[in-house]
Design a protein around this nucleic acid. Sequence first.
DNA 1: TATAAAATCTATCTACTTGGTAGGGTTTTG
DNA 2: CAAAACCCTACCAAGTAGATAGATTTTATA
Lengths: 137, 137
Amino acid sequence: MLSHKAKYALKALLYLAEQDENHISKTIEIAEGANIPKKFLEQILLDLKRGRFVSSKQGKFGGYYLIKSKNDITLAEIHRLFDGAIALLPCASLNFYEPCSDCKTEEECSLRHGLMIIRNETLKAMQNITIASLIKK
Amino acid sequence: MLSHKAKYALKALLYLAEQDENHISKTIEIAEGANIPKKFLEQILLDLKRGRFVSSKQGKFGGYYLIKSKNDITLAEIHRLFDGAIALLPCASLNFYEPCSDCKTEEECSLRHGLMIIRNETLKAMQNITIASLIKK
DNA sequence: TATAAAATCTATCTACTTGGTAGGGTTTTG
DNA sequence: CAAAACCCTACCAAGTAGATAGATTTTATA
């Protein structure tokens, strides 16, 4: 399941992608447009900025805008930024790998191989879902 | 990510599937064989019993055994039993459907369609991972 | 240069979930 | 009849999710 943070992030990006080029959106504007609690959205936008999906302009008439093409922002990236690994266990993850604590006898746990298949399939699917693909319904 | 419960359930089923036909495994035996806290495993085995994956025999020389073929127990089923929906949002789920609380303007949320694609792909992959497929390495 | 509007930072809060433990009670069977 | 197993209920500690609050910095412009 996606966290609310990840869900809100997607909706915020969707909102930004739907604006005219060069338009700068205030937080409050995004919050109301996408129905997201404003203070919560503030944190999310900062995370998105750290992740280099958006950038911001401070001060009066400031706000947020996309700095990555809507065709290049994938669900996989947003998932990783907010919810971490795509794999079902850390030992099957590429970006968030950690060994299992409870696999004593074998070097690889019995589940790892099967879970890596899932991970690859899911990742492939998630990389195909972009902000742009979500817009055209 | 899988919960520990789901992970332990898979390992316990794997352990049971590796025993000789007609063998009955005591909880303590599974716990030690698969490295799972015994008292925690008790609860998990009860859940698996309610889910009709295993059955049990009480009394001296009792224990647990599979009642479903290892070819028919899929990762998807175990995920649903312990961790719930496979979809990334409730509104994209078939078995655990719930409408979004924060989608005001549209009847369907903007993310739903894309997430249902992911759900279908993931489900298909998860249905291909069976206990039997995990055994043969 | 004062001011208003906006992002940014830091801290806090509450409720829920997870992972696990404790301690029995009940049933079966050698 | 007691050992061995299943079965049940409650509890707990730690962490996380989902926010909210308030102060500070930055910037445009009147």
